[in-house]
Computed example of a mutant assay.
Amino acid sequence: MRVIQAKEIADLLAWPALIERLRRTFQEGVESPGRHHHAMHRPDGEATMLLMPAWESAGYIGVKVVNVFPQNSAHRLPAISGVYLLCEGQHGTPLACIDGSELTRRRTAAASALAASMLARKNADTLLVVGTGQLAPMLIEAHSRVRPIKRVLVWGRERGEAVKLASHYADHFETAAVDDLRSASGQADIISCATLSTEVLIQGDWLRPGTHLDLVGAFRPDMRECDANALARAEVFVDTYAGAQGEAGDILQAIQEKAFRFSDIQADLFELVRGEKPGRSSDTAVTLFKSVGASLEDLAAAIEVWEQHRLRNPGQA
């Protein structure tokens, strides 16, 4: 069994190939039971363990184990860490143990980019990233592979981190760290939020016609990144119905506030990719994609890692 570290994953997962792998996997489908979600009561606060299994009907088998510790920010450590175990499908033999954190952030950004390739306006060129954690740079890179991004705005609770992230990409885009989230939202064609917020960050009234809102961070019912009005205004899409119904705090809280119904969701990624339901209705529509993550995405990314690893290291396969 091979151990594949984060640095190697970054080299193996080219964005176009990963996004296309996700597209094919959503089109073909895999067996993916619901995510196992376990709250852990730690001395310094609440933490979460996630178990995410998936398997192809006649192919690879995999499971991801993830620990989410929001309190890690106080120690300047990543909030999310984990591992992915990939097995072959004929006998169930383990093939690789893959760094789960790097795999997760790249597949998450790729799923957002896949959604944006069908939902964001084709000429969308200004991206606002809300949040400065490890997922934020991945969202910049992934979105820029599917839309002609020229300008990147970054907002974070710690301005210094926003400045650092904006500066990192200054050679590739026109970048700026922003303080006024309302003003920045009104300038953006795509708004991508990747936070662990339990309070509203983006308000529906701020969204100009044609905006695409990408909600990635909030993955528990008590978390949210936008208000109910944003959902009421938007054409809403999700990665999976099951994930949205169980864990998408933005949606669940809007339903509790009677501003939205689950039946108002336009489509999930399966239906979009397969062409079973349409995406954006017009260039003036506001679209919203809510992602909580799916084990299908992890399996697709792990397979891409493994098959690229075999191509580059034929003697080790």
Results as ranks from 00 to 15, higher is better:
5 Q>K: 12
5 Q>G: 00
6 A>S: 08
8 E>Y: 03
9 I>N: 12
11 D>Q: 15
13 L>M: 06
13 L>W: 01
14 A>L: 13
17 A>I: 03
18 L>D: 01
22 L>S: 09
23 R>T: 07
23 R>M: 01
24 R>C: 13
26 F>N: 08
27 Q>V: 01
35 R>M: 09
39 A>C: 04
40 M>P: 00
40 M>A: 12
44 D>N: 08
44 D>I: 03
45 G>L: 07
46 E>A: 11
46 E>W: 01
47 A>P: 01
47 A>C: 10
49 M>P: 00
50 L>I: 13
51 L>Y: 01
55 W>F: 14
56 E>Q: 15
57 S>G: 09
58 A>S: 14
60 Y>W: 08
61 I>C: 06
61 I>W: 09
62 G>M: 09
62 G>D: 05
64 K>H: 13
65 V>C: 08
65 V>E: 13
66 V>K: 15
66 V>N: 15
66 V>L: 15
68 V>D: 07
68 V>Q: 10
70 P>M: 03
73 S>E: 11
73 S>G: 02
73 S>I: 05
74 A>E: 15
74 A>N: 07
74 A>L: 14
78 P>A: 02
80 I>H: 14
80 I>P: 02
81 S>R: 03
83 V>G: 01
85 L>G: 04
85 L>K: 00
89 G>Y: 00
93 T>G: 07
94 P>Q: 14
95 L>G: 08
96 A>E: 11
96 A>W: 06
97 C>W: 10
97 C>Y: 07
98 I>L: 12
99 D>G: 05
101 S>Q: 15
102 E>F: 00
103 L>F: 05
104 T>S: 15
106 R>E: 06
109 A>C: 12
110 A>G: 03
110 A>T: 04
111 A>V: 12
113 A>F: 06
114 L>V: 10
114 L>D: 04
115 A>V: 08
116 A>W: 00
116 A>K: 00
118 M>C: 05
119 L>K: 07
119 L>S: 06
121 R>H: 09
128 L>N: 03
129 V>Y: 11
129 V>F: 12
130 V>P: 15
132 T>K: 02
